[in-house]
Amino acid sequence: MGDTLSFAITHTTTYSFDQPVKYALQQLRMFPRNGHGQRVVDWKTTVTGGQKQVAFDDQFMNRTELVRLDPGAIRVEIVSEGVVEVEDRNGVIGKHSGYTPLWLYAEPTPMTAAGNTVRKMAGQIRADCAEMDDIARMHELATRVSEAVKYQTGHTDAETTAEMALTAGHGVCQDQAHVMIAVARQLGYPARYVSGYLFMDGQVNQDASHAWCEVWTESLGWIGFDVANQICPDARYVRVAAGRDYGDAAPIQGVRHGAGDEQLQVSLQVQQ
C-alpha cells in the first residue's frame, strides 16, 4: 500500500446575476465517495441563495443533488467542503462496479465522437503500439495526447468536443481527457471522464477543479490517466464524479429562465 494523504478541501462557487433570478435549478455532482483508496472523513455541500430539493445516486454512482435557486436571488454561493484521505494506488481503481455495463463506456458520446483526427491518432497507436500490452499502450496514448493537445487556457469551453480540441492542438485538462477517452474508445477500450481535485504541492489556493480520465483494461480494470500532468493519479487526487464525458460528471449544471447575464467565480482551497 502506498502513502496516504489527508486533505481539507473548500470549493466555493459563486454565481452573481445582474437580474434577480426567476426560476433556476442547479444539479450538483460535488460529493466525493468512499472507495478505491479514497476515504471521505467528512463532507458537506452548503447552498446560500438556494434550497436543496432532492438527492440521489445517478447511474455512475455519483451523489447528485438538485438545488432550486431562491426566487429573487442575485447571488448564490455553493460551498462544497470536507476532509478526504487518499491512498496512493498508482492510479489503479480496479474492478468495474455498479449497474452501468462496461460497454456503455466504450460507446462514443457527442463530445467524444471520433472525427478524422481522432481516428488518425487511433490508427497511429494501433500501428505503433501493436506489441505493447494494454497498459503500456495507454501510457503511450496519454503521452501523445499531451503532445498533441497543448495545455492552454482560454481557447476551449465546456462545449468543445474531443475532435475539435485535437484539431486545434490545444485545450485544458477537460479537453485532454476527452481526447484520450475518444481515442481509447476508438481502439475498443471502455473509458470514462473523472472530475475531482488535485492538490498542487506548496499551494493553498488551487486553480480550479481538475479532470482526468480512466481506461478499463482486462488485467487491472479501471486505471486513471492524468494527461495534463502526465501521471497516473496518486494520493494527491480526490475523485469526485465520473461518467462518459464532462456532461455526466460536471460539478454543476443548471437551467435558468429569464434574461440577464451571470458571472461565475470559483475558488478552491486544498490543505494537507
Partner: peptide
C-alpha cells in the same frame, strides 16, 4: 427541467 431528478429520488 429537473423532473428526472425528482423521479430518480422517488
Amino acid at each position: 427541467p429537473g423532473i428526472m431528478d425528482v423521479y430518480r429520488a422517488g
